[in-house]
Amino acid sequence: MNLTLNHLSKNFGNIKAVDDVSLSVPSGELVALLGPSGSGKTTLLRIVGGLEAADTGQVLYAGEDTTHWPIQKRRAGFVFQNYALFRNMTVFENIAFGMRALPRKQRLKAVELKRRVAELLYLIRLPDLAERFPAQLSGGQQQRVALARALAIEPRLLLLDEPFGALDAQVRKELRRWVRQVHDQTGLTSLFVTHDQDEALELADRVVVMRDGHIEQIGTPDEIFESPATRFVHEFVGESCALPVDVRAGRVSYAGQQLDIEAPLADGPAHLLLRPQYLAPAETGIVVRIDAARRVGPRRRLEAVTGAGDRLEFEVDSDIDAGRGQTLHVRPTKWRLYSIH
């Protein structure tokens, strides 16, 4: 089912939680809503699920305006941040809850219901835990039960609010891949909220970067990482260093020194954004003095200061002997320029 959001806005008092957001999600796509806390991503997800009412704008499910539909009618599977499992029910009862809440005519017979729950338990790889209570499960298991419970109602789309937020790093990684598998198996249009850029880039088909209630950029993980539309996106996704530069007649200069960089920008001050991975020592370039060197996995991470006092970070092969106090030239292999308005 495709999902369309038309000019959604939502205010809490004076705060614009969601500010004129439009988005179109084709059927079967897995979309990440990425942003820092307070960027409105959770509010947007809740509006899509009907848990929050937008002040203006529309939510279309497969072209049908659902803006004023009650939550129950939407059939949007929602996985809550802290899972919100029913503590007084077993895993089986939790998963069966949605099927039992169906109108009497559509309700499954007890045998079929049991079979369906068993299928879902198999899908979440917890076939033996049907009679456990949520308090007897680990965080990762609760998370999977919450997902099975949402899938049980055969939802039209799947909404996940910080689905891996409360889990430890190892479980989080495993669950991420597993959620991707489940998504590919079910083919459900899915939206998930996260503040973790790695999670968004690894898991999603498309990433929506949000800031202060509006969308900064929509793009594939590659586009978001390689061609950030704004300085905010550049700094929020991946690591960044920024240098204040001047643009004159298409040439970029930093601290009086002209750099070998083309600038399709109007004349004036700008920011040159660099990633540690795309900055390398060279014969000529920006002169830096090394401040600290740390080993990061197979490579060496250098922290350096330019003559003008700006900090730069970059990576070199670990066999390059670079020590504190040494000076060298660095050149960016990839960069982004953002003019200062």
Binding site: I71, N82, A84, A101
Partner: peptide
């Protein structure tokens, strides 16, 4: 609010 919101997304009415 989470439990009642969860119940509502699963299709349960107020009484249930």
């Amino acid at each position: 609010h989470a439990p009642e919101e969860a119940a509502a997304t699963l299709g349960a009415g107020r009484w249930r």
